[in-house]
Write a protein that binds this DNA or RNA. Sequence first.
DNA 1: CTTTTTTGTGCAACGTCGTTGCGAATAGGG
DNA 2: CCCTATTCGCAACGACGTTGCACAAAAAAG
Lengths: 148, 148
Amino acid sequence: MPPLPSPPDRITQTLVRHGLRQTPVRRAVLAAVAGKGYALSGPEIEREIGPGTTDRITLYRTLKSFEQHGLLHRVPDDTDVLRYAACSIECSAEAHFDNHVHFRCGTCTHTYCLSQVAVPAVALPGGFRADRRHYLLSGTCQLCQPAG
Amino acid sequence: MPPLPSPPDRITQTLVRHGLRQTPVRRAVLAAVAGKGYALSGPEIEREIGPGTTDRITLYRTLKSFEQHGLLHRVPDDTDVLRYAACSIECSAEAHFDNHVHFRCGTCTHTYCLSQVAVPAVALPGGFRADRRHYLLSGTCQLCQPAG
DNA sequence: CTTTTTTGTGCAACGTCGTTGCGAATAGGG
DNA sequence: CCCTATTCGCAACGACGTTGCACAAAAAAG
């Protein structure tokens, strides 16, 4: 009895949709970032997928590729490391649609994507043309609140 | 005829107000950042004050000190370098009051402080407590608009 | 299935930004 | 002017991220 072709999983679909090849590294990186509700830095992703899975160079190249193809977006931060989070499903290489607020917790240091909170609009002075808006809050998250 | 004591300039005042000593490096760094309407990175400040004025280590220590004492604030960015801008006059070591929008121009790469544009409020999910808000726009600034 | 081509991976080496430790210099109060 | 706490500069270091090139793997072609 020949094995039935199993339906493509979510990660496979995502890679296919953005025209990227299936490779173990890409699957691992995507799996590590996609599940999280918060943004991960390069080193964090490295730890997440296991140090032996890939080397730093390939990881950073993968992240850059994912960003360009609309699978991940950079999350601004007031630190000197870059952080990435999974894009919403309708993002593409041409345009991003991640207009949600980010929240950085000073205690657990996670930067959460509050996907249910939209970025409010602002009126810009004449001459400024914005194509991307980021709203970043810092404070204490749900899980890190002091008891009381 | 003895020279009259000249009135303390703005930079002297700022250092005194925050309880910091007057040193050439601090005056130079403060002068470089205070005039600008946009945020500067460490290397940019270094270039601004002249490479021979100080070495990197002292510069970064100065920036950290200024940040802690409320003279400068970090401006979030989606790059891996830290950028600083001058605080408004009422900022102190205890609290910052720079609730203005920042605008990053992709052409000239400057991150402007739009001090006249306030950061709009958002409603947070229960449990999140924010003490600092950042609003960052990216696009094209007044000076870099394509003609037409 | 095999071959070809295209694309991704890993190694080595490197550049930049930012940091620690410690002795020398300096600001500011007596 | 002198003393003391603070700051500066040097040396060395560490982390993050990047480039160039040879090899390997994935997709496409036969």
